[in-house]
Design a protein around this nucleic acid. Sequence first.
DNA 1: TTAGATGCAAACGATTTGCGCGGAA
DNA 2: TTCCGCGCAAATCGTTTGCATCTAA
Lengths: 159, 159
Amino acid sequence: MAGSHKHHAAGCTKCGLETPDELLAACRAAGLRRTHLLESVLEVLRTHTEPIKIGDLQQAKGIRGTCDPATLYRLLQRLETRGVVRRIGLHERAAHFALRRTHHHDYVVCRECGDVATLDMDCPAEKLETEVGRRTGFREIYHELQFYGVCPRCAAKSA
Amino acid sequence: MAGSHKHHAAGCTKCGLETPDELLAACRAAGLRRTHLLESVLEVLRTHTEPIKIGDLQQAKGIRGTCDPATLYRLLQRLETRGVVRRIGLHERAAHFALRRTHHHDYVVCRECGDVATLDMDCPAEKLETEVGRRTGFREIYHELQFYGVCPRCAAKSA
DNA sequence: TTAGATGCAAACGATTTGCGCGGAA
DNA sequence: TTCCGCGCAAATCGTTTGCATCTAA
């Protein structure tokens, strides 16, 4: 099970990675204070291609000293409200968080080991958002698309 | 926010509703015993167009007497394993469950009141499953697509 | 100076597990 | 009779809240 045994260095081919300064500027503009924790969390998220759980965030390199879960929850909540990160449900008890990149991403999740891979392909649901809005009357629509399956490693293990 | 204040009677236009007997037969074939709880749960799920939480299931009409959450969890787990229901994450603390209908469904969720509506439209992700498999090496892929937004009622309230 | 952040501890609530009993096969 | 399913109680664990303290602005 578990989660963060892998750090894909490669990112999305289309997605220009934000610089630390850009991110920080966005947060400042949103009224957040420049805190050491804020900087570290942004940096961890920035260098992670995959969504990360708060538990893993706590132990991530670069997060100094004590790292109270409550504080992290609050920080991420704030970041989500300001539109800097997005919260992602991946059928695990713990929610995952990822930076809101310059464009949308979808994920593949292994239902055996919980490993998550970020997909680098055009999302077919994006263009449906307006149609869904028209049909249902919902406003401010965004979406979340996840694929679930068994990763190669786990498939090999079972064989 | 809340949950089951609405029961859409209408179902998917394309989705033939299973009969109680068909469902029961599937469960029996899967090795499950015919229990009163099993029957009631299946019936509640069958007549619900939207996914339902265990908490709501507990209080649903037709579930008699005490209804221990632990028992429900275990039953739904069994049903999920056997492929009768699917577990759905909707950004709420509690997971939702729905019958595996004759074809796939996607949902729209209100981020204010938590109301869930089932979409009756062609899912663009379905055909991507094989492509995702090819790209990532994952096997036995299925997907989950949710739209989030503000429902008309909540939008009106805010105005 | 002052409102926003943080750490710590306790409260919550969904999910999970152990166990003995009762009922379906 | 046998094994699966159930109710009950207790344990887990992610998330949330209250509160006193600290600190960026």
